[in-house]
Simulated assay, not measured.
Amino acid sequence: MAAAAIIVNALGVVFLAHAVYSAYEHSLLPSSTATPPSGSALSRSLKPNVNLPIDITLETLFSALLLCVGVVLSSPGLKPIQWNVWAGRLEKSKEAREITEVGVGGGNPYAGLEERAGFLDIRGKRKEFADWIKKDARSEKS
């Protein structure tokens, strides 16, 4: 697939270069025999000629289409949009679980946020409080 993308991109560049050169050459053709007025700020060779033949226009559009297709073919695969799918794939891969250097690898990148020491565990605190209340209630009955 990579070789096909390179060939499509190369053809697109060649066609685009030819279309640009053809448009330049067409702009140099004399469009009228009248001489430009002497008070003209632009000389006759610098005035733009926008009446391009249809073949040059079609070649330009075709080359742009080829380049777009070549860029799409040569791009890497898309990654999942949903974070949980991405993190799940990352946790399942053996390479991602291996820590090769500090801060690189280690599975889910959000695991550190969930297991950090300064993170307050509300459910755990609520359970501790309920146990404390039950223990206090038992001590009052005795």
Score class of each variant (00 low, 15 high):
Val13Lys: 06
Leu67Gln: 04
Asp55Gly: 13
Thr57Trp: 15
Arg126Gln: 03
Gly77Pro: 12
Ile54Met: 06
His18Cys: 11
Arg116Gln: 07
Val20Ile: 03
Ala41Pro: 14
Ser75Gly: 06
Leu16Phe: 05
Lys47Pro: 01
Gly103Gln: 01
Pro36Lys: 12
Ala10Ser: 04
Ile6Leu: 08
Trp86Gln: 11
Trp83Glu: 11
Val85Ala: 11
His26Met: 06
His18Lys: 11
Glu95Pro: 08
Ile54Gly: 05
Gly77Ile: 09
Leu28Thr: 04
Cys68Trp: 15
Glu25Ser: 10
Thr33His: 08
Cys68Pro: 13
Ala87Gln: 01
Leu66Val: 02
Asn84His: 08
Lys79Arg: 14
Ala23Phe: 06
Tyr110Val: 01
Ser63Thr: 06
Thr33Pro: 10
Ile56His: 00
Asn49Pro: 07
Ile133Gly: 00
Glu59Pro: 02
Asn84Lys: 09
Gly118Pro: 04
Ala130Ile: 14
Leu42Gly: 05
Ser27Glu: 04
Gly88Tyr: 02
Lys79Phe: 07
Ser43Gln: 10
Thr57Lys: 15
Val14Thr: 06
Ala96Thr: 08
Gly118Ser: 00
Lys125Pro: 06
Ser27Pro: 06
Ser63Glu: 07
Leu67Arg: 01
Asp121Glu: 05
Leu58Ala: 14
Ser40Trp: 01
Ser38Arg: 06
Ala19Trp: 03
Leu73His: 03
Ser31Phe: 15
Ser45Glu: 12
Phe15Met: 07
His26Gln: 10
Glu25Lys: 10
Leu28Ile: 00
Ser31Val: 13
Val20Gln: 01
Lys141Thr: 09
Gly107Leu: 02
Pro48Glu: 03
Gly70Ile: 05
Lys125Val: 11
Pro53Trp: 02
Ile81Lys: 15
Ser139Val: 15
Val13Tyr: 08
Val72Tyr: 02
Trp83Val: 14
Gly77Ala: 11
Arg123Met: 10
Gly118Asn: 06
Gly118Tyr: 04
Gly106Ile: 05
Leu113Val: 00
Asn49Trp: 02
Ser27Gly: 09
Arg123Ala: 13
Ala4Ser: 05
Pro30Ala: 08
Val8Leu: 00
Ala2Leu: 09
Val8Asn: 00
Leu29Cys: 05
Val104His: 02
